[in-house]
C-alpha cells in the first residue's frame, strides 16, 4: 500500500514543474529535463488513481488484518 510518491506530493511537484516550464526559465535542455520529470510524475499519479479498488471492510475483519503487516 505504500507508494513511492504520494498523490498530493506528486501533484505538488508537478505543479512546480509546470510553472517553471510556463515561465520558461532555464535552457531548452533544462526544459526538456523538467518535461521528462513531469511526465514521470503524471504517469505515477495516473497509476495511483488506477490502483484504487472499492472495498468496504469492517475493522477487525480478516481482510483488514493484512494491514497489520505494513
Amino acid at each position: 500500500m505504500e507508494q513511492s510518491v504520494r498523490f498530493e506530493e506528486a501533484m505538488q511537484k508537478l505543479s512546480e514543474i509546470v510553472s517553471k516550464l510556463e515561465n520558461a526559465e532555464g535552457s531548452l535542455d533544462e526544459m526538456i529535463r523538467l518535461y521528462e520529470e513531469g511526465m514521470t510524475l503524471v504517469k505515477s499519479c495516473e497509476r495511483q488513481l488506477d490502483a484504487y479498488e472499492a472495498t468496504i471492510t469492517r475493522l477487525g475483519d480478516a481482510a483488514e488484518g493484512k494491514h497489520d503487516a505494513e
Partner: peptide
C-alpha cells in the same frame, strides 16, 4: 484525473510554446 491531465497538457503547451 482531470487535474493530472491538465498539468500534463500545460507541460506540453509550455514546451511547444518554447
Amino acid at each position: 484525473y482531470e487535474a493530472v491531465r491538465l498539468q500534463s497538457q500545460r507541460m506540453h503547451r509550455a514546451l511547444s510554446t518554447r
